[in-house]
Simulated scan of single mutants.
Amino acid sequence: MNCVFCALVEAGSARWVARGPVASAFAPLAPIAPGHTLVVPSSHFADLFDTPPEVLTETVALVRRVADTMRSALRADGVNVLNAGGPGSEQSVPHLHFHVIPRWHDDGFSTWPTGRSQHQVQGDPIARLASAVAG
């Protein structure tokens, strides 16, 4: 199987926010906002429908931790959690993943962004998230 997310998890080559045996979080290659994070099961599951409930529970718990941390560490006004399930939904990588995107009143995009955020965050937002999610 040639799954890009499985390869990242196996190689450890991503910018990690959190890594665990069941769920992991990392920065996407082309973030649409400072701190944009992908949360995935650490093992391969194609989408929500393919994922065992106990894995989905731990994955969504990590989504919540990352989202909570965005509000505190990045001072986001809100957070979008986005998921596309299956090829008919425009799912770009056939591995369950959630986009966790910090939002600010002045970020310049709508709920499903088509461009890049105009918001600036001081320092390295992924490093701040990684530190805060870790503990």
Rank of each mutant, 00 (worst) to 15 (best):
F45L: 05
S72L: 15
A30C: 14
G88S: 15
L48K: 05
A23M: 04
F109E: 13
V39Y: 06
L74D: 08
I126P: 00
A67Q: 02
V9S: 00
P28T: 00
R64I: 13
V9Q: 04
L56Q: 10
G108P: 08
L48E: 08
F45I: 01
A76Y: 07
A30H: 14
L129G: 06
S92C: 11
D50G: 06
R128S: 11
H99Q: 00
H36D: 01
P31E: 06
H36K: 10
T111A: 14
F109D: 12
A127I: 09
A33G: 06
A18D: 03
L74W: 06
T51K: 00
A84L: 10
E10V: 11
A61S: 14
F49A: 15
A134N: 14
S110W: 12
G108S: 10
V93Y: 01
P52A: 11
V22R: 03
Q118T: 15
T114D: 13
N83H: 13
P125N: 07
W16N: 01
L56M: 13
P28N: 07
D106Q: 13
P87M: 02
P41S: 08
G85W: 01
T59C: 08
V133I: 12
A61F: 12
G108Y: 09
L56E: 07
H119D: 10
E90M: 13
